[in-house]
Amino acid sequence: MDHGEHNGNGKQQSWRIPTVNRHKDFAVSGHMVFPRDKTANSECVVAPRKEPPSAAKRLVGKDGKLLGFPVFHDNRTVEEYEGLMPAPEILTLVEVARREIEGLDYAAVMNQLADLGPDGRLLLYKRDGKLLRYELFEDPRICKDIPRGAVIHNLEQKPADVSGWRVHEFVIDPKGCLGEVCTRCSRVCPENAIHLRGVGADSFCEIDPTACKGCFICWVECARKAADCILIDGKVFDSELRAAHFGE
């Protein structure tokens, strides 16, 4: 995609901003920011900025004062970032085998990687495409089922079955459900346990019994209060009971 990276004079007017995002970086063009895929070796390299990001300089008024206080400039600038070594490239044994890396002692590295087993990684510290040094990384974990820092990857580590968490069984009655014109329950469900089934007038929402934790939110938020299309333990609860249950 070309995101207007050329202005009227035909000169390129965009630059990259530093980001911690692993997959995207951001191109700035005028006042617009465009995400784009990161290229392999460009991680964390910061474009040198000519103008220092000095709050003092930006905020100084015409009289040379900031909030009435005089501001002194010592004409020093931020040290250039060009020499900054980028974060290392991290490769597995298989990836090392597939790549041609200049200045790497393949025999030794492959041997060491093989010793470390499938958890072994090669870290390549490069500058200007040249290999400065490399390190071998062995996973320090002893219990491999726990991620570093006990960080949970929300998309990968969903509990398989939470049906044990709930006390009541929740079932949506397809006859009472408004289907795709509503879908309110599926949008409010905190566990993403309610999914739309079917199309058009035949569509209805369905609760995934392994993902439902029994929080009552769909039951409270259901648009069809009078019809009470959500059955709890197979029973229809009336609105008065609902009011009593939640003190509404």
Binding site: V20, N21, R22, H23, K24, C44, V45, V46, G83, L84, M85, P86, A87, P88, Y125, R127, L132, R148, G149, V151, I152, H153, N154, L155
Partner: peptide, 20 residues
């Protein structure tokens, strides 16, 4: 700069593709 590489965030916040 040639001794200390730039920071490598392993599990950054606000990474929409990989929320943690």
């Amino acid at each position: 700069d040639s001794f200390l590489p730039s920071y490598l965030p392993l599990e950054p916040l606000f990474s929409p593709d990989q929320p943690v």
